[in-house]
Amino acid sequence: MTGSIVRWGAPLGLGALWWWAVLRLALSPDAGVLEGAVAAGGWGLSLLPVHCVPKVRAAGALDTGRWREAWRLAVATRASRPRRSGAGSDLS
């Protein structure tokens, strides 16, 4: 019983607090920093990905060192290419 109260009560209470801040910012001329901080914080929390799975189980997840290997390959490829002798030498 206590678990379900916390599971439902906390989000409902925080949601009510967020709506209070947003409505106060929109409708009250004397809204201040507190309301702005609550509204911005709640909006920022809504951007968090809540449906995450570990990278190992995620469909289509890439290996951890993928970008490091791609960078090394690009540097190695660039180093093996012959360099031109001048910037504008072929524009005669």
Rank of each mutant, 00 (worst) to 15 (best):
W19A: 11
D30W: 15
S4F: 03
G88D: 06
W43L: 12
V33L: 14
G3Q: 09
V22S: 04
A26V: 14
G65N: 08
C52E: 12
L27Y: 09
V22Q: 06
S92N: 02
W71F: 01
W18M: 12
H51I: 10
R83K: 10
R68D: 10
K55T: 05
A70Y: 07
V56Q: 08
L25N: 09
G41F: 03
I5V: 11
L34M: 11
L34P: 04
G41W: 03
G65Y: 09
G9C: 09
R81G: 05
W8A: 13
R68L: 11
A10Y: 06
W8V: 13
R84W: 04
G44S: 11
T2M: 09
G15F: 09
W20N: 09
S46K: 07
A59I: 08
T64Q: 05
A10P: 02
L45I: 04
L62V: 15
V33E: 14
P11Y: 12
G65W: 04
W67E: 10
S28C: 15
G32D: 13
V75A: 14
W19H: 03
P29C: 15
W18C: 10
W8N: 14
C52M: 12
A10M: 14
R83L: 13
G86D: 03
W67G: 01
S46T: 05
L48G: 03
R7P: 00
G32N: 09
V38N: 07
R81I: 02
R72G: 07
W8P: 08
G9I: 13
R78L: 06
A39L: 03
D90G: 02
R78E: 05
V38I: 15
W71G: 02
R24F: 05
L34G: 03
A74N: 04
R24E: 12
G32V: 14
P54W: 09
A76G: 02
R83G: 01
A76C: 03
L14E: 13
A39D: 07
L17T: 08
G15R: 01
V38L: 14
K55D: 00
D90I: 07
A61E: 00
A16T: 12
G41D: 04
S4A: 07
A21E: 03
D30S: 15
E69P: 00
P49E: 15
R57T: 07
R81V: 05
L47I: 12
R72W: 02
R84F: 00
A79C: 03
V6C: 11
P54H: 08
V50S: 13
A26H: 11
A40Y: 01
L14M: 15
H51K: 12
S85P: 00
A40R: 01
L27N: 13
G86M: 03
E35K: 01
A70R: 12
E69W: 07
G86W: 00
V6E: 11
A59P: 06
A31L: 10
A40D: 01
R81E: 09
P82D: 01
R84P: 00
R24H: 07
L27I: 12
R57I: 09
R78S: 08
L47E: 11
A70K: 09
A37Q: 02
R72A: 08
L27Q: 13
G15L: 14
P49T: 10
W8R: 08
L27F: 11
R78G: 01
G41Q: 05
P11M: 15
D30K: 15
